[in-house]
């Protein structure tokens, strides 16, 4: 796709100062809509959010500057903050590995010898693009005390399953399973693309050297796929720390606050309890956590991601 980049083509057009200035003016015209929009709808909110986090900022009524009071309140006295952070962390710890194992497994299964693999790929991708609310409602039906899962085990094995959505641990497990079902198709497609790009010469050389089965997978294929695994791990982790709709609709954060994650905490503080300043502070804490985790991943990648070949 890269034939001649602008940078390479540049020297040819040097020494045309007048035209250069004209081009700068034209560029300004082209970029103004994006620049104006990003300023109003991203830069201003970011600055505003920092300011809000330093205020007692109710949705209506008087605002009062309280310095880092909101942050102190979150870390020391707010009863729901630590559980929310813990819930987001637990969700991420369960969701990311499960998502990657399932999506990579499916991508490997859907190899070149499987007929109709394009159709299978699209099938596994569908819940990624259908409205999350609809996906969750379907699972809420399945997980009802007399839903499909319990109905099948009762009828077939006379086994009554726990009431999933009313049990603290089971509720979290089900939020994770539902989310894996919904979201893994995206990573699967990325892995499919990465697998198709594997250098056939290296695989063939490994085969000639006698690599087979598990050895072939763990010593050859997986290291070759490690850049894609790294990319999907980082992206999936970032999005799973921001989980909201699945627990909000499946369990309402409950039972108690057993499945109430950070974004739902932020949403509730801001729009149910009208504590906009506290919510803004919580959002910055979450942002810092995400940045920290991402930075850790980038540091760790030197040890296990292979970019050569």
């Amino acid at each position: 796709m890269t034939s001649i980049s602008v940078a390479e083509a540049a020297p040819r057009r040097r020494g045309r100062g007048e035209l250069g200035k004209a081009e700068s003016r034209q560029a300004l015209g082209f970029i103004t809509p994006a620049l104006a929009g990003l300023t109003v709808f991203t830069v201003v909110p970011v600055v505003l959010s920092v300011a809000m986090s330093l205020f007692d900022w109710p949705a209506w009524g008087d605002r009062e500057f309280i310095g880092f009071g909101n942050y102190v309140d979150l870390f020391t006295s707010h009863p729901d903050f630590w559980p929310a952070l813990r819930n987001s962390a637990v969700f991420t710890l369960l969701f990311v590995p499960l998502n990657l194992v399932v999506s990579l497994g499916l991508a490997l299964l859907l190899g070149p010898r499987i007929r109709g693999r394009a159709a299978f790929r699209v099938l596994f991708f569908i819940p990624v693009v259908t409205p999350m609310v609809a996906n969750v409602l379907v699972w809420r039906m399945l997980l009802q005390p007399n839903g499909l899962f319990n109905g099948v085990t009762t009828a077939a094995f006379d086994l009554t399953l726990p009431s999933f959505l009313n049990h603290p641990q089971w509720a979290m497990v089900m939020v994770v399973i539902m989310s894996v079902w919904q979201g893994m198709g995206y990573n699967m497609l990325i892995f499919c693309a990465a697998i198709e790009q594997l250098p056939e010469s290296v695989l063939e050389a490994a085969r000639i050297d006698g690599a087979r089965g598990a050895q072939m997978f763990f010593r050859v294929t997986l290291p070759l796929l490690s850049p894609a695994v790294f990319f999907t791990t980082v992206m999936t982790m970032i999005s799973s720390m921001q989980v909201f709709a699945q627990p909000q609709l499946l369990t309402g954060g409950g039972p108690g606050n057993a499945t109430l994650p950070m974004v739902m905490f932020i949403y509730e503080q801001a729009f149910t309890f009208q504590q906009m300043g506290l919510a803004a502070a919580a959002a910055w804490v979450l942002f810092a956590v995400i940045i920290g985790l991402t930075a850790l991943q980038f540091r760790a990648q030197r040890r296990w991601v292979h970019y050569e070949v």
């Binding site: 991203t42 970011v46 505003l48 959010s49 809000m52 921001q242 909201f244 974004v263 803004a280 979450l286």
Partner: peptide, 24 residues
């Protein structure tokens, strides 16, 4: 430089934006 700043805004997640955005 401007392009770099543009990309920087990609890092800001939605949940940081929604609270001030509602105020806006």
């Amino acid at each position: 430089l401007v392009f770099g700043l543009f990309l920087l805004t990609l890092m800001v997640p939605q949940e940081v934006l929604v609270v001030p955005m509602f105020q806006l």
